[in-house]
Amino acid sequence: QKPIVRVFLPNKQRTVVPARCGVTVRDSLKKALMMRGLIPECCAVYRIQDGEKKPIGWDTDISWLTGEELHVEVLE
Rank of each mutant, 00 (worst) to 15 (best):
K2P: 03
K2W: 01
K2Y: 14
P3T: 06
P3G: 15
P3C: 11
P3Y: 14
P3R: 15
I4M: 05
I4R: 02
I4A: 02
I4F: 04
V5Y: 00
R6G: 02
R6K: 07
R6Q: 05
R6C: 04
R6L: 03
R6E: 05
V7A: 06
V7K: 00
F8G: 04
F8T: 12
L9I: 02
P10K: 00
P10I: 01
P10E: 02
P10H: 01
P10F: 02
N11Q: 11
K12M: 12
Q13Y: 05
Q13C: 02
R14T: 10
T15R: 02
T15Y: 04
T15L: 05
T15N: 01
V16G: 03
V16F: 10
V17F: 04
V17D: 00
V17A: 04
V17Y: 01
P18M: 10
P18R: 13
P18F: 13
P18H: 15
P18I: 06
A19L: 05
A19Y: 02
R20C: 08
C21T: 15
C21F: 06
C21M: 15
G22P: 01
G22E: 03
V23A: 12
T24N: 12
T24L: 04
T24S: 09
V25I: 13
V25T: 12
R26H: 08
R26M: 15
R26Y: 08
R26N: 09
D27I: 12
D27Q: 09
D27W: 04
S28E: 02
L29Q: 00
L29F: 03
K30P: 01
K30S: 05
K30L: 05
K31F: 03
L33I: 14
M34A: 13
M35V: 14
R36L: 08
R36M: 05
R36F: 03
G37N: 15
I39R: 12
P40F: 15
P40H: 11
E41K: 07
C42F: 05
C43Q: 02
C43D: 01
Y46V: 09
R47M: 06
R47Q: 14
R47H: 06
I48A: 11
I48L: 14
I48T: 08
I48S: 09
I48C: 08
Q49S: 13
Q49E: 12
Q49K: 08
D50N: 13
G51V: 07
G51K: 09
G51F: 05
G51I: 13
E52Q: 13
E52F: 14
K53D: 07
K53T: 07
K53F: 13
K54E: 06
K54P: 01
K54M: 05
K54G: 11
P55G: 03
I56L: 08
I56H: 03
I56F: 04
G57R: 10
D59P: 03
D59R: 04
D59K: 06
D59S: 08
D59E: 12
T60R: 11
T60P: 01
T60A: 11
D61T: 05
D61P: 10
D61W: 04
D61A: 07
D61R: 05
I62D: 01
I62F: 04
I62L: 09
I62Y: 01
I62A: 10
I62E: 01
I62M: 09
S63Q: 07
S63F: 11
W64I: 13
W64N: 10
W64E: 14
L65D: 03
T66G: 12
T66L: 05
T66F: 05
G67Y: 03
G67I: 02
G67F: 02
E68T: 09
E68M: 10
E68L: 09
E69M: 05
E69Y: 07
E69W: 04
E69L: 04
L70G: 02
L70N: 01
H71L: 09
V72E: 00
V72K: 00
V72Q: 00
V72I: 06
E73K: 02
E73F: 06
V74M: 07
V74C: 14
V74S: 13
V74T: 15
V74I: 08
L75K: 14
E76H: 10
E76P: 13
E76L: 03
